[in-house]
């Protein structure tokens, strides 16, 4: 089935793109990789009047890292680029794992991490590791820019905090600490090509004695939005991460999950499996932290 008709606009700067989005409001949608937007148009037979392609805006595909400032992922950086980036693999391994686990080679070459967030699917693979790593999003509009912690960006299934005329310009992650490890675990009925039925990202930072300095546990596909389990962080911090601590944190993940039943899994199964995934992710994150 062919796509419904629309007009394609191709601004050369970020401000121009924001101006077009502000001018056309709900009649316009921005497009990065297009894998979600065009797919939905084909499926629903409905298109916005205007598609604002971001491809010509310079610098948006950059991924930059340095130890002082951390990691910056531009709005057009593809999932494949992020998955293969040596600094992401080394310092933010859960994110590299999640980007590599999203969809297929072809989709990863086209789709972007920023688009994955803006689409605001509760099962977005890159959301839990970005939450666990304390990501912020830089939202750009002609009048200026605001920074939002990623946990405040998701507002519900398919809903995000972007205002009309605003674009997610960059995702920013703080610098990696010493003895820090992170891990991503996902499960789906079929292979990795399938959308995750449940997923967990864990990040832990240890001190020299093996005491947990900070911890983050984030869940995907078990609530209306990707979710940080703050109670698990509070439980883990300030003590060594023992098997008992892992089990207790996993139990808190189960309690925080508010899943639904859908085509991919039942709510009861999701509740059960999220604890298993949380324990696996935490143990793997600790191992990576110790290996540093």
């Amino acid at each position: 089935m062919a796509l419904p008709r629309f007009e394609y606009l191709s601004p050369g700067t970020l401000d121009e793109a924001c101006a077009l989005l502000a001018e056309h409001g709900a009649d316009a949608r921005p497009m990065a990789g297009g894998t979600d937007l065009l797919l939905r148009m084909g499926r629903t037979g409905r298109a916005p009047s205007f598609v604002v392609g971001l491809r010509r805006v310079p610098g948006l595909a950059d991924v930059r890292f340095d130890r002082e400032h951390g990691l910056s992922i531009g709005a057009l950086a593809s999932l494949a680029t992020v998955a293969a980036h040596p600094d992401v693999i080394r310092h933010y391994p859960a994110l590299a794992q999640a980007a590599a686990a999203t969809a297929t080679v072809q989709i990863r070459n086209m789709g972007t991490v920023a688009g994955n967030l803006c689409n605001a699917s509760p099962s977005a693979d890159t959301a839990p590791p970005l939450l666990a790593h304390g990501a912020e999003v830089l939202l750009h509009r002609r009048e200026g820019e605001r920074r939002l912690s990623l946990s405040r960006f998701f507002r519900g299934p398919g809903r995000n905090a972007l205002e009309p005329g605003e674009l997610l310009r960059e995702i920013h992650l703080p610098p990696p600490g010493e003895r820090t490890g992170s891990d991503y675990q996902r499960i789906s009925q079929r292979s990795q090509v399938d959308i995750a039925a449940a997923s967990v990202a864990a990040r832990v930072a240890l001190d020299e004695e093996g005491i947990c300095r900070s911890a983050r546990l984030a869940l995907g596909a078990v609530a209306p939005t990707p979710l940080l389990v703050d109670e698990a962080a509070a439980l883990l911090e300030g003590r060594p991460i023992t098997d008992e601590q892992v089990a207790a944190a996993a139990a808190l993940a189960v309690r925080a999950a508010r899943p639904i039943s859908d085509v991919r899994a039942s709510a009861a199964w999701r509740k059960k499996v999220i604890g298993v995934l949380a324990a696996r992710a935490l143990r793997a994150a600790v191992e990576k932290a110790l290996a540093q």
Binding site: M1, Y8, G34, T35, L39, G42, A103, Q106, I107, M110
Partner: peptide
């Protein structure tokens, strides 16, 4: 499939495999 799942429409764009069914010709 026209949904980016089956790979039959794969072409290389700037050397990278993409689904041509989810690529606008103008892009």
């Amino acid at each position: 499939c026209r949904t980016g799942d089956c790979g039959a429409c794969t072409v290389l764009l700037d050397g990278k495999a993409v689904s041509s069914c989810l690529t606008l010709a103008v892009e």
